[in-house]
Design a protein around this nucleic acid. Structure first.
Lengths: 217, 217
DNA sequence: CTACAAATTTAGACTCACCTAAAAAAATAT
DNA sequence: ATATTTTTTTAGGTGAGTCTAAATTTGTAG
């Protein structure tokens, strides 16, 4: 059974390495985990002998398959809990991170599967990040800001970046929630504003707002 | 900020002392916490200097007001989470304890208040134990087995002791869920069976079942 | 290519929560 | 009242995860 610290190291290594693509340096990890390089060296040796990562002195660490599946399980829990906190309990999505950091370490497969079921098997969390399934598979979806869409393109709202409560209220009003379909009707070149359709209702969206809405095609 | 171990000690001390009524011995605590007497002595000294308990060598410990309020906060969280697991996620109530032992240590007042609200401010958990409010006040309710009720008495179902799934299915069928009102229509002396009304429907309840249903007047 | 700077590792130490074994105190039995 | 048993405490030690300070390796600039 992995300790809290071990799980956090693996999660950070996974993220910092772009899902295992590249090696992660000691200092990066120290920074991310709010600890000192010397402590990282210690832990990294331990995780290496346990074969969750491979470690080469002065070079950095790479996450193994075994390590990835631990990391993904933790990330899955984190994102499901965030979704739960926002969707079910009405947290704002800038309030959820700290709590989810704790909840992600609760040990119970049954619990997380029930939460997943309760939420209706969501694909993305409130930040628009994809939720790995129970097998650790992630469905990558190309996110882009609404403002990058061409006129006429259809897309699905995935998340909203900013959490300013005025913005949220406005989006609430026009029904711009994650999951909703959206079509770009027209774009104004000179100020970057655009007109969109959400459920056959037309709305005017400023450039600022269009930069904060993430969509997928 | 209290550690997990400290919170568990305080919770155990609270329970073993009957809510602070009597002193708790080192060995009792060691037994309850699955640890050794020597370890208990160490921790008990620490909690004592922090004034969560008062400790007298060779005599035992007593929980202070400060200690009680910590213990009650943990117990509140434990019972709210158990209620959530059973009511919302469909856990059976003999499956919830281990998970609730973890969840009770999540640090976030906002979270637990939202859970409380989401559940509709329940008074008791799925075992029929009262849930302390945010101020640590417990509403004690006299629980008794259904079989102890006199003919004609009205009561509210609080919990079911046994978790045999046949029993649960039967109770489900007749709508005998915690919170439901129940009236004793008649009792048969010779076999201890009784007739009850739940929402103006009459049902026949065997002695065995009536021993497993806890009610409050 | 040498010298300095930056990153990393090693060495040694700390706290937390636990342990075992031995000593001390309290309870019990004769 | 003394001896024996039980309970509790003390003393000393362990592993996990962290730290600081010093040593080492690697990278960079002249």
């Amino acid at each position: 059974m992995l300790s809290l610290a071990e799980e956090n190291y693996l999660k950070s290594i996974y993220h910092l390495s772009d899902a295992g693509e590249k090696a992660v340096l000691t200092n990066e990890l120290a920074e991310a985990l709010n600890t000192k390089a010397a402590s990282v060296t210690d832990m990294v040796k331990k995780l290496s002998t346990k074969e969750f990562i491979s470690y080469e002195k002065y070079y950095g660490v790479k996450i193994t398959g075994k390590g990835k599946s631990v990391a993904l399980a933790v990330i899955r829990k984190h994102r499901l809990w965030e979704t739960f906190l926002v969707q079910t309990l009405g947290f704002k999505w800038d309030e959820v991170h700290e709590v989810a950091e704790q909840l992600e370490h609760i040990k119970s497969t049954l619990l997380i599967e029930k939460i997943d079921e309760f939420l209706g098997y969501p694909q993305v969390d409130p930040h628009g990040d994809p939720i790995p399934n129970a097998q650790g598979k992630i469905k990558k979806l190309e996110k882009t800001a609404l403002k990058n869409l061409a006129t006429g393109s259809e897309s699905t709202i995935v998340a909203v970046k900013d959490s300013d409560s005025n913005l949220l209220k406005y989006l609430e009003k026009i029904g711009a929630k994650p999951g909703k379909k959206l079509t770009v009707i027209s774009k104004e070149e000179y100020d970057g504003s655009l007109q969109v359709a959400i459920e056959s209702q037309h709305y005017f969206i400023s450039k600022e707002v269009s930069e904060n809405i993430l969509v997928t095609l």
